[in-house]
Write a protein that binds this DNA or RNA. Structure first.
Length: 271
DNA sequence: AGCCAGGCCCATT
DNA sequence: AATGGGCATGGC
């Protein structure tokens, strides 16, 4: 099925290459293939229209969060000194509604890793544990990973993160961690709950909350945000926790979205 | 060749 | 609560 949408506040390259998601392939100018969970879509921007092609359009309408008005959010954030350039640069960024399980596993793997290799590992994982669909491999489910041991992950190149994934899968299987519990908690409690998982620390927890639970009042502090901190506050702050608090105080309830504009902007100078 | 990557775990203080 | 060392692997 195929359907058209307004391209207001929607630029595929900004959405996919701002670091929130890994299973995408550029197939042309503002034309991307995206795999989420066990579904695939093709997205292309043509002038002021977004053309979306997928078997499950409902899923991807929610995935792209088409109901949220980013003009309002950007208007608020632009008032913060130092954000305007980054927002202008990444004006087509939207925060996706990603699958919680896939996001948890993906961002455990993302820790102290580079994006190119993260993408490769997630493809390896899908190919070797997910089911084959029409022309792609679905992301593995919890059930498909419960029988995998540490060596399985090591062979896929996960390195020392193999133990984290294996433990996390086991805890989920034992029902000591329930994804649905997260929705019931406020952001702070949800963050603590997520950090029970092996391989989930403050930064990964923030990414999961931001990318899979629409919690915008977080601020993932990675190596890039550490570099950006000095530009905003003029000091070299060694305490990551304080950095996060300072950013959230400055950016407000949409700090997580501000962080995405900054991450995308800062990284663009390297690539 | 050596530093770095969307950091976390664990021991120690 | 906070600090510091160690860590698999590969991109650049």
């Amino acid at each position: 099925m195929i359907k058209e949408y307004s391209a207001k506040d929607f630029i595929p390259s900004h959405i996919f290459e701002c670091g929130q998601v890994f299973r995408y392939t550029k197939i042309g100018d503002e034309n991307y293939e995206i795999i989420s969970k066990d579904k695939k879509a093709i997205v292309e921007k043509q002038n002021d229209k977004i053309i979306l092609q997928a078997d499950d359009l409902d899923y991807f309408e929610n995935y792209f969060d088409l109901k949220t008005d980013y003009s309002e959010i950007k208007k608020e954030l632009e008032k913060v000194p130092g954000l305007k350039d980054a927002i202008e640069f990444g004006k087509g960024v939207r925060i996706l509604n990603q699958d919680p399980f896939e996001t948890i596993i993906s961002f455990i793997i993302s820790a102290n890793n580079n994006i190119k290799r993260i993408k490769q590992i997630l493809e390896n994982l899908s190919k070797s544990a997910g089911i084959k669909k029409d022309g792609f491999y679905a992301f593995p489910t919890l059930e498909q990973l419960v029988n995998k041991d540490v060596d399985f992950y090591k062979q896929l190149g996960l390195g020392y993160r193999s133990e984290y994934i294996e433990k996390t899968i086991r805890v989920m299987l034992d029902k000591q961690f329930l994804i649905d519990e997260i929705r019931e908690k406020d952001t702070s409690d949800a963050r603590e709950y997520l950090m029970q998982l092996s391989g989930v620390g403050p930064k990964v927890a923030d990414c999961i909350l931001l990318f899979a639970f629409q919690r915008y009042d977080v601020c993932p502090i990675d190596t890039w945000m550490k570099k950006i901190y000095f530009e905003f506050f003029g000091i070299n702050e060694p305490n990551v926790h304080k950095m996060r608090d300072d950013f959230i105080q400055l950016f407000g309830e949409h700090a997580g979205i501000a962080q995405q504009y900054l991450f995308f902007y800062k990284r663009s100078f390297v690539d």
